[in-house]
Computed example of a mutant assay.
Amino acid sequence: MIFIRYENWKSYLKFYPATCLFLLANVVMFLILTLNGGSTDPYTLIDFGATVDTEPYKSELWRYLTAIFLHNGFSHFLFNSFALLVFAPPLERLLGWWRYVVLYLFGGVLANVLSMALSTPSPGVDGTVSVGASGAIYAVYGAFLYIALFQRASMDEGSRKTLYGLLVMGLITSFAIPNVDYMAHIGGMIAGFFIYGLIIRLFKRNRR
């Protein structure tokens, strides 16, 4: 079962350095937001790099990257950080740290781009502020979906069932819970699926 963490903290740091850096970035940015107006304040989120589906913010491309490391409230931060902590490490070990970084960041950016491209601001509303690592995390799930479907020898049956359950429940809650950016989730999953397929063809890695 690849989604159960058996490592102690020293082994975790050694085997998953990129995941640790992503987690650290989440923590640091959450603390910065908390000390500068609060992580639930939309103006604070915008100041520190949230995506917004109105101009001039929508055209500021840097926001599509920075928004990955911002979270709206402690529960949002905790849920995404837990998912990253538990489910992402096997992909980093499989791809190697830099290929994994490429997939995580590009998947998150493409998820945000798709979300903003398909967003339609309501009349009289200044815009919808969107943040979170969910798009990048769903890119990781998308990569695992590719493995489950086309590289079955790399994933045991229990892990496949866990993955399918995660995806089904994730998509249901994305639509059922208000104020969830479901397009970022769907976009991240699609992006991760195809980015993984591209990476394993362009950057082959010797497996042990």
Rank of each mutant, 00 (worst) to 15 (best):
residue 116 M to V: 15
residue 143 A to Y: 04
residue 115 S to C: 12
residue 126 D to T: 08
residue 107 G to Y: 08
residue 120 T to F: 15
residue 104 Y to A: 14
residue 155 M to D: 07
residue 111 A to P: 00
residue 111 A to T: 06
residue 163 L to V: 10
residue 139 A to H: 05
residue 140 V to F: 04
residue 137 I to S: 07
residue 130 S to R: 06
residue 129 V to L: 07
residue 119 S to P: 10
residue 111 A to E: 05
residue 110 L to M: 15
residue 137 I to V: 15
residue 108 G to E: 14
residue 115 S to E: 12
residue 114 L to T: 13
residue 116 M to P: 01
residue 139 A to N: 04
residue 124 G to C: 11
residue 133 A to N: 06
residue 123 P to S: 11
residue 145 L to I: 01
residue 118 L to W: 09
residue 153 A to V: 15
residue 120 T to I: 15
residue 134 S to E: 04
residue 126 D to S: 12
residue 128 T to R: 06
residue 117 A to F: 14
residue 164 Y to F: 13
residue 144 F to L: 02
residue 141 Y to R: 00
residue 142 G to V: 10
residue 142 G to T: 11
residue 125 V to S: 14
residue 154 S to D: 10
residue 114 L to W: 09
residue 160 R to E: 02
residue 135 G to W: 00
residue 133 A to M: 10
residue 153 A to W: 04
residue 124 G to P: 01
residue 146 Y to W: 14
residue 135 G to S: 02
residue 162 T to F: 14
residue 156 D to Y: 05
residue 118 L to I: 13
residue 154 S to L: 15
residue 143 A to I: 11
residue 114 L to R: 01
residue 133 A to D: 02
residue 106 F to W: 05
residue 136 A to L: 06
residue 161 K to D: 12
residue 143 A to G: 13
residue 164 Y to V: 11
residue 113 V to T: 14
residue 113 V to E: 09
residue 137 I to Y: 08
residue 145 L to Q: 02
residue 127 G to F: 08
residue 138 Y to N: 12
residue 133 A to C: 07
residue 111 A to H: 01
residue 120 T to G: 03
residue 125 V to G: 13
residue 139 A to L: 06
residue 159 S to Q: 03
residue 116 M to Y: 08
residue 118 L to G: 13
residue 137 I to M: 10
residue 135 G to D: 01
residue 110 L to P: 04
residue 144 F to M: 01
residue 106 F to M: 10
residue 137 I to F: 12
residue 150 F to A: 05
residue 158 G to T: 05
residue 147 I to N: 07
residue 134 S to H: 02
residue 150 F to H: 12
residue 120 T to R: 10
residue 138 Y to Q: 07
residue 126 D to L: 09
residue 143 A to W: 01
residue 125 V to K: 05
residue 136 A to C: 04
residue 155 M to C: 08
residue 159 S to P: 02
residue 138 Y to M: 09
residue 134 S to C: 08
